[in-house]
Amino acid sequence: MLRTDEQTRHFDDFADILLRCNHLYRPSLDSITLLNAVESRRQIEIFDYTNSADAFTRAFGMRNSLKCLQALTSLGTAIHDYRKVCDLGCGSGAFSLAFAYLARNPNLELHGLDAAETQLSLSEELMSVARLPGKFAFEQRSLPAPIGYLPDLTLSSYWFCENEHVIFDPALFDLTVGKELLVVDYEKIIDHITAFLPRGFRVLGRYSANIEVPAALTEFVAQEKASVHSIHIGRVLD
Rank of each mutant, 00 (worst) to 15 (best):
L66F: 07
E139Y: 04
F136D: 03
L237Q: 14
S157E: 09
A216V: 00
C90Q: 08
P146S: 09
H165R: 13
H111V: 13
R83A: 05
C68S: 13
A15M: 08
H10L: 15
P144G: 08
R41I: 09
L217P: 02
D191W: 01
P144A: 08
A215Q: 08
T4D: 09
E117K: 15
V203H: 02
D13K: 01
S52C: 06
D191K: 10
G61F: 04
E180K: 11
Y149E: 12
L69F: 10
A215M: 03
M62L: 13
E139R: 02
R9L: 12
F47D: 03
A94C: 08
N51E: 10
S128P: 00
P27M: 03
E187D: 15
D169C: 06
L175E: 10
A226L: 12
Q223W: 01
D114F: 13
S74I: 03
L19Q: 04
A78P: 00
G89M: 03
H165A: 12
H10I: 06
A103I: 04
E6D: 12
D81N: 14
I167F: 01
G178M: 05
L122I: 15
C86M: 07
D12L: 10
N107L: 11
F196K: 01
H80W: 01
N22S: 15
G148R: 12
R41M: 12
L181F: 09
F14H: 12
D152Y: 06
K135A: 11
M62Q: 06
K135D: 05
C21L: 11
R199M: 08
L237K: 08
S208N: 14
L88Q: 04
R235P: 03
F196I: 00
L132R: 05
S96Q: 10
I233W: 04
L72F: 10
C68E: 08
T33D: 11
S230I: 02
T8E: 15
A145H: 09
F196V: 00
S227R: 13
G148V: 10
E125D: 14
D238Q: 12
D169T: 14
E164S: 15
D238N: 10
R199L: 07
S142W: 13
L204N: 11
G205V: 10
D191T: 09
F14V: 05
